[in-house]
Amino acid sequence: MQYEINHNDLSLVLALVRGRSLARAAELLQVDISTVFRSIRRLESALGNALFEKSRRGYVPTDAAQAIAEQAERAEQALGAARMALRQGEQVVSGTVRLTCTEAVLHSLMLPALARFMPNYPALNLELATSNNFANLSRRDADIALRLTDTPPEHLVGRHLGDTAYVICGRPDFRQALEKEPTSVPWVAPDDSMPDHVSVIWRERTWPSIVPRYRCSSMSAVSELVSAGLGVAALTDFTARDLQGVEALSAPLEGCNTGVWLLTRPDCRALRSVQTLFDELTPLLREALQ
């Protein structure tokens, strides 16, 4: 009969993965070193798999040990949430919510908002993923998405948080050259992986003769190059505000205003954890967009 691991096995593997030594694992488990050594040898024998490799770096976990440790951490979090629920009653908000947005939106909008209220929900866990694809929600890889769009998919539900404008921004020393001859300054732009990005469409329509000197695979990278003084780019107004030493070098670009949406799947609306995040994020993100 195949051996079935138990809670003690999970705790043992997690302690050794975290500690990387018998001594540290013993300290975490509050047992002696010999107990950890015997227990891990016994577990490896029962499973028929090596869980750790001994090296100069200590006990290095195998893929099997890493997989067990990941499940052990989830069990640890669930146990912690259950204990907190007993202490605080039914009002505690717990669980794990998977949230997705682009890197640029994560740094400029999402993280500042999360920092203001997440400490109030110690039993609520977030998994953050940066992606441009609505398909994340469709495939159930995420529960909530913060997206810049004027046409959110009909199969998703959510809240319109406001609109953002695009401006040309860069270091102040580019201003004079930009006003005199836009093609004379180095431009930073999305690469061919984002042909439908609003800034690309605007540039090709307004100044088709401009050939960007730098092309990036994400808008976060575009903003980093602009911040480093390498050139100018069309960026959202909230991104431009966050870049040190960078100024808006133009008025809002015509035809580039874009809606900002907080979205989820219909089946997620009833989840207390998802509803809590919607209620907390909505006023903070609307404030940031003003």
Rank of each mutant, 00 (worst) to 15 (best):
P195H: 09
R87P: 01
L137F: 02
P186K: 10
P153M: 01
R74D: 05
H155F: 07
L109Y: 04
L126H: 03
E70K: 12
S94H: 11
T130G: 02
L156W: 05
L156D: 07
T100P: 00
R171S: 13
A129W: 04
R74S: 07
H155A: 10
D196F: 14
P122L: 14
Y166S: 13
L86K: 09
I168M: 10
D196Y: 09
V198F: 02
H155E: 13
H197A: 15
M118V: 06
R139P: 00
A75D: 15
L178F: 11
Y166V: 07
D196T: 13
I201K: 11
A145I: 07
A113E: 05
V93W: 03
Q77D: 10
P172G: 03
Q77H: 14
P152Q: 03
L109A: 11
T151S: 13
G170E: 07
R74T: 04
Q176A: 14
A113I: 00
A67I: 10
I68F: 09
P172M: 02
G80P: 06
L137P: 00
D141T: 05
H107A: 12
H160F: 09
V185F: 08
L86F: 11
P119D: 04
G158P: 04
L106C: 13
R83V: 04
V188T: 06
P153I: 05
N136L: 15
E76F: 11
P119Y: 07
A75V: 14
L124N: 07
P190E: 11
A135I: 02
D196K: 15
S108P: 04
L148N: 04
V157I: 15
S193E: 06
G95W: 00
L106Q: 14
Q88H: 10
D150A: 09
D143H: 13
V157E: 12
D196C: 08
T206H: 13
A72I: 08
P186R: 11
Q77P: 00
P152Y: 03
Q88A: 09
R175C: 02
Q71Y: 08
V157C: 14
N120E: 10
S138F: 08
P153N: 08
G158Q: 06
M84S: 13
P153T: 07
G95K: 00
P182V: 06
A113Q: 00
F117I: 01
P195Q: 02
V167M: 07
E70L: 07
A69V: 00
L128A: 01
I201H: 01
L156T: 05
V93N: 02
W202Y: 14
L79T: 14
V97R: 06
R175L: 12
L148A: 15
Y121P: 06
E154L: 13
W187A: 06
P153L: 14
Q77W: 10
L109S: 10
A104M: 07
P190G: 11
S138Y: 10
P172L: 01
M118K: 10
A165W: 07
